[in-house]
Design a protein around this nucleic acid. Structure first.
Lengths: 259, 259
DNA sequence: CACACCGTGCCGTGAACCGGCACAATATGC
DNA sequence: GCATATTGTGCCGGTTCACGGCACGGTGTG
């Protein structure tokens, strides 16, 4: 138990500051050197880390095993493989940065990105946590979730990020209704002043939102025409991914496959 | 130790067959149910897995933590972020499937893929291990490595995959010399009969190969013209990535940054 | 209703992890 | 060149906690 927690913390630390030695890690984690050393050897025999090629001091780096494991991290049929081609098509049509995010623990997490060719870009690191009430992806997911998810989120409060952030429950409710009506969500500098986005939710087999796809544009580049155009595009893209995942968004029951 | 190994095996099994229950995992791993249960709870408190939304029975799925950890899995400056735009450019010029692989443990591992728009495609799963002596990426890496790496690989033998596979040490040596001469490696059905590829190695700061980029084409579509064209393209792409990584491929020593 | 299977929790035993410490080898300061 | 600091590695005793058999309540299934 404690052993596993230590080893996983060491693993994360290795990932963060690779290539790293025993001393670095022990100091960064505030864990005795011996413990870190044992964790490193264990992770090595498990095939998760290896020693860097350079001779001298032993520096540890990750193997590709974490990558292998995270391949199935997004959903049943490898959401990423299905979504990326659709995202490429979408970016081709608008030439703006396209994001894919999945809901997790009261946030949405950015898991894939395709960049625009334009010089002014939105650049968020993969793995970034975005708030549910102040991002286009978050609001799209929230609008597609049940009311209990909304209440759960309201209970945690609506922190303000900019002066356009929705911090009132009623305002958020009205916004979500508008999103459900037109099918896509928008964000006009509600989280970072200069970031705007348009997003639509991807629905899984159970009709629940499993992801969200968005077009991200610097606020300075947004016009009412592009906004509407992006809305239509992300709706189409999200519907395409949902269908490819086998989503039953108002789909008729399929004839059962012959056994 | 044993504890950690168990937990990591459980984690991999969850990744492979998510959403999965305790019984499934225990049977698949041939580990007592109690042990698996403890490992699941531990992984949960560590934030690596979570319960699926569906009510009924508890099914476990991965969180995005493995994805976060694997972000830095490829190199110092996130090789993937640097390579993907170059790969997109490359695919745009030839409209064929582009692969990115990294060397690891006597193999090369496929870590990124961009697909062609053409109907006949090469589809290899991400994370696939490719042999050093019978794949374009592998040979490109081998040609850019030191002679001791070659000897180490020769000691393990050269298994035959097809009737064009290079299984003789001398033949491989000659091939590697040819690769070093022209800058790119080729594979003409030496691993799978219908898969051909052209690859060039990406060099890191120490001048060692840290990755390889390749254009993969069905053998039926290969001509001598496309082969030469792809060779030039992958060389250019690999050089671009190497430069972006700060590779010192014949680069002069930089003035040290003022402290 | 019986049966099988599910996920979960308890518990005694013994093997393990923990972490302080010591040691060799290599940078760094004077 | 000596002294100092820091590195990675290995050992070992004490105590903890992981192991895995077993039992329980709940849920389909025949």
């Amino acid at each position: 138990m404690q052993n596993v927690l230590n080893a996983l913390r060491v693993l994360e630390e290795v990932a963060a500051r690779q290539p790293a030695g025993v001393g670095d890690l022990a100091r960064g984690l505030e864990i005795p050197k011996s413990t870190v050393q044992r964790a490193l050897l264990t992770l090595h025999t498990a095939g998760w880390i290896r020693q860097a090629d350079g001779g001298g001091a032993t520096r540890w780096v990750l193997t590709t095993k974490p990558l292998l494991v995270s391949r199935g991290a997004t959903g049943d049929l490898s959401l990423r493989d299905v979504a990326v081609p659709v995202m490429e098509e979408l970016r081709g049509r608008c030439d703006e940065t396209v994001h894919l995010a999945v809901p997790e623990g009261g946030k949405v997490v950015l898991i894939e990105r395709l960049e625009t060719s334009q010089p002014v870009r939105i650049i968020l690191p993969l793995g970034k946590n975005l708030p549910l009430h102040a991002s286009a992806n978050g609001k799209a997911v929230l609008a597609a979730s049940g009311p209990e998810a909304l209440e759960r989120h309201l209970a945690e409060g609506l922190p303000r990020f900019t002066d356009t952030t929705l911090t009132e429950a009623d305002g958020l409710r009205a916004e979500l209704a508008r999103i459900r009506e037109r099918g896509y969500a928008t964000n006009d500098g509600e989280w970072r002043t200069d970031v705007s986005a348009t997003a639509a939710a991807v629905l899984g087999k159970a009709g629940r939102p499993v992801a969200s796809i968005s077009v991200n544009v610097p606020s300075s580049r947004v016009t009412s025409e592009t906004r509407a155009a992006h809305g239509a595009l992300v709706c189409e893209a999200a519907a395409g991914i949902s269908a490819a995942l086998g989503g039953t968004r108002a789909a008729e029951r399929l004839p059962r496959p012959t056994p």
